[in-house]
Design a protein around this nucleic acid. Structure first.
Length: 451
RNA sequence: GGAGAGGUGGCCGAGUGGCUAAAGGCGGUAGUCUUGAAAACUACUGAGGGUUAACGCCCUCCGGGGGUUCGAAUCCCUCCCUCUCCGCCA
């Protein structure tokens, strides 16, 4: 039977074949043997995701690597044997000088070959780190967000007897959002919140954390907002997407673009217990994104900021049920919008819109009357074992006695700034005030109307 | 910032140049015993890679990198991390 692209996943689950190699530092994203065995399938996947990578390059390098390994191991074996002999001769008190001089030459040769080997392995590693995840078969083919597939709607778009305003009008009018001073303090895409708006942001993130911990049983964590290079590589931001990140000058540290990075990396290089799966963590963090390449997009308002707050949901799942877990995660994010009464739709991202590390992603898009458009407010993804391989996150499988990679998932639950925008625009009244949903009242000291 | 101590397999912990993939223990798996379970006893139990039809054979890995040496877990340099004491500080 011809293996399909889908075989990547199942193949990767074979416990005897899986396993990344932390000792040599070769975090992997696709199983090496699969790449060697089914290069056509890999090439097909690479083409589908428009990477421009050629498997022929990989195979050539891999061949070189094997040749050099054969050579170097042969020398090593000879050296080891001769070394044993030296030890023996010395023990007998015999002279071993001849062997010793000869061996020093062999050692030098080994050193040279090792250098070549390393350079080839680095190239192979670069290649492999540039390969995006393989889309799940459910993922629609497509090039742009136009090709995303809408799978559901919830709620009704509000009918206004007046022309609804955008939040970038309402915010300043109600003295909550100060775009000018944000720009003065830092620059464009930074906003100062005053009074009710600052409080509403805090109310929302507390509300979200409470729902996710209390009703959906996530464990709340508060991770570092700055991470190292290994963490960025573990979740797939590096090495390919450096330009999207803020880097700390003179340090190998980065500001996190999402809580996914520190939270997923909690268990990097760890072996989890099967009976503890799934693990479910939620975290509030600010997120920092350079938004390189989005010049001119969403320049007004809070939609696209260099710094924004988010409550994130992260799950470490058993490979057998990660797609059920994805549905669950999606429902947990949806709950927040439902409780707030905000209309939304859910789309499945097409192959062209899918993120680098994801196998399948649902975007939740909230209705924004000010723009007469649905805008992304949460993105829920199953990464399968892609991140787990890179970050070396495994579990001890009781049955097989072998270690397998977990599946990682995450999703926003939700982006706080955009939720605030959605509330302002959907809950605005004819007099220019905003009537907040009752459920937030305890978080707002009972205040329901912003005017 | 100054002074010390340490990083070894799933976990704990021996190991100061060749006899060490690494004692011992815990955990795990299988078996003996038992009506069953526990206890006890016995055996097995790291990973990656190369080669092979397969059995197997071989190479590498003791925080990362570099060096000394015929040969390094063990000696030297360097970086990272953890811990203790002093100073400073939210």
């Amino acid at each position: 039977m011809q293996p399909s692209v889908w075989a990547f996943q199942t193949f990767a689950l074979c416990s005897t074949l899986s396993g990344s190699n932390t000792q040599t530092g070769y975090a992997t994203m696709l199983d090496l043997k699969f790449m060697q065995q089914y290069p056509e399938q890999v090439q097909e996947a690479l083409d589908k995701r428009k990477t421009g990578l050629q498997m022929s390059d990989f195979l050539r390098l891999d061949q070189q690597r094997k040749e050099i390994i054969g050579e170097v191991e042969d020398l090593r074996r000879r050296r080891n044997q001769a070394s044993d002999k030296v030890a023996e001769l010395k023990k007998q008190g015999a002279d071993a000088q001849n062997q010793i001089t000869e061996l020093s030459l062999v050692s030098q040769k080994i050193k040279d070959l090792d250098g070549n080997k390393r350079s080839i392995e680095e190239q192979l590693q670069d290649f492999r780190l540039s390969i995006p995840n393989i889309p799940h078969p459910d993922v629609p083919l497509g090039d742009t967000d136009e090709d995303n597939r809408e799978i559901k709607h919830w709620g009704e778009q509000p009918n206004f007897s007046f022309t609804p305003k955008a939040h970038w009008e309402l915010g300043p009018e109600l003295k909550g959002l100060d775009f000018e001073r944000g720009a003065k303090i830092t620059g464009s895409r930074f906003t100062l919140y005053w009074g009710w708006a600052a409080k509403l942001e805090r109310a929302l993130l507390n509300f979200m954390l409470d729902i996710q911990t209390r009703d959906h049983h996530y464990l709340e964590v508060l991770p570092p907002f700055i991470v190292n290079q290994d963490s960025m590589q573990g979740t797939g931001q590096l090495p390919k997407f450096k330009e999207d990140l803020f880097k700390i000058e003179d340090w190998n540290y980065y500001l996190i673009p999402t809580a996914e990075v520190p939270v997923t990396n909690i268990h990097r290089d760890e072996i989890l217990r099967e009976e503890n799966l799934p693990l479910a963590y939620t975290a509030f963090t600010p997120c920092f994104r350079s938004e390189a390449g989005s010049y001119g997009k969403d320049t007004k308002g809070l939609i696209r900021q260099h710094q924004f707050n988010k409550v994130e949901l992260v799950r470490f799942s058993h490979p057998d049920n990660s797609y059920q877990e994805l549905e669950l995660l999606l429902s947990h994010a949806e709950t927040i919008l439902q409780l707030l009464g905000l209309p939304y739709r859910v789309v499945t991202l097409c192959t062209g819109d899918l993120g680098f590390s994801a196998a399948k992603t649902y975007d939740i898009e909230v209705w924004l009357p000010g723009q007469q458009a649905y805008r992304e407010i949460s993105s829920c993804s199953n990464f399968e074992d892609f991140q787990a391989r890179r970050a070396n996150i495994r579990f001890q499988a009781a049955e097989s006695r072998h270690k397998e990679f977990v599946h990682t998932l995450n999703g926003s639950g939700l982006a706080v700034g955009r939720t605030l925008v959605a509330l302002m625009e959907n809950c605005q009244e004819a007099d220019g005030s905003i009537l907040l949903p009752e459920i937030l009242s305890p978080y707002m000291d009972g205040r329901e109307r912003i005017s």
